[in-house]
Design a protein around this nucleic acid. Structure first.
Lengths: 142, 142
DNA sequence: ATACAATATGCGAGTAACTTGCAAGAAATA
DNA sequence: TATTTCTTGCAAGTTACTCGCATATTGTAT
């Protein structure tokens, strides 16, 4: 479990060819800290209190950081996006169909499945990212 | 590739414990015909022309049929949902990050991965459905 | 340091996808 | 055929997200 120092995060932004701003750093370091996919709402809520960041700025930074490959964007059919830091490690989710709880599981590779998919595909030679979610009721909601 | 007759579809609705209405049947048979995940917009557009169905009715029926387990709901991070008939066969998607093309690949099981995930999970004993999408550029967009 | 061009920000207004309230109409059951 | 319950259309509402524009800040060249 890598911990990211402020300098690490600054470097990540810089190496992505992006400008360094306080707000951009706040967004990135918040996501580095929580280590779970979180909703934009939670992010906006926390950062507005702490640093007085406008929601438009949060959205724009999430977009920029995502484009730059520093974030993952996830969708669990809840009508609002989740974001998390792009760690490079494979990561998949278990999602409760009732209470929206999300459990992240790391370290399970699906390279074999991806290879099989690409072999069958007519329109794609390779892919760059993927997402996989399992849906069901969590222990609390059974 | 199973083809669904009107009677099949009627039975599916009936067995799900739902009422049979013309509009509900239209929605279901449209999805049975296209065999690919399609957007609500495409559905609304086609059905409005053909049968004069209001978009609220389409949304409500998609919801009802999905709740009943007859449809799958997919999200490709495009800001609008896709739906397809629930066939029972596993089915995963390749999605173009540029042009929103979706290619569906059937017949690849990921049961092993699911087992591994559940073994690692602390919050879930079992899951009922899943989704998996690979993202990249399709041949046209490379 | 300073000036300049490019990018980021806040604010308010706008948009797209989807939902809801309500009155009227159609389906299932007796 | 009557009654109950579900479905529909319409218009208005909500939510998540985006945009325009004026101002502020960043990185770069001087």
């Amino acid at each position: 479990m890598a911990l990211y120092s402020k300098e690490d995060l600054l470097m990540m932004i810089k190496e992505a060819g992006l400008r360094i701003t306080d707000h951009r750093l706040s967004v990135l370091s918040f996501l580095a800290k929580v280590k779970q996919p979180i909703t934009v709402y939670e992010l906006v809520d926390s950062l507005r209190k702490k640093d007085n960041i406008d929601q438009a700025t949060v959205y724009r930074n999430l977009d920029t950081l995502h484009e730059a490959g520093l974030l993952r964007r996830l969708d669990f059919n809840h009508g609002h996006a989740h974001y998390e830091l792009e760690t490079g490690r494979p990561s998949h989710q278990l999602v409760c169909s009732n209470c929206e709880t999300v459990e992240k599981i790391e370290g399970i590779s699906i390279d074999d499945t991806i290879k099989k998919m690409l072999k069958k595909s007519k329109k794609f030679k390779h892919t760059t990212t993927h997402s996989m979610e399992l849906y069901g009721l969590c222990r609390n909601c059974i």
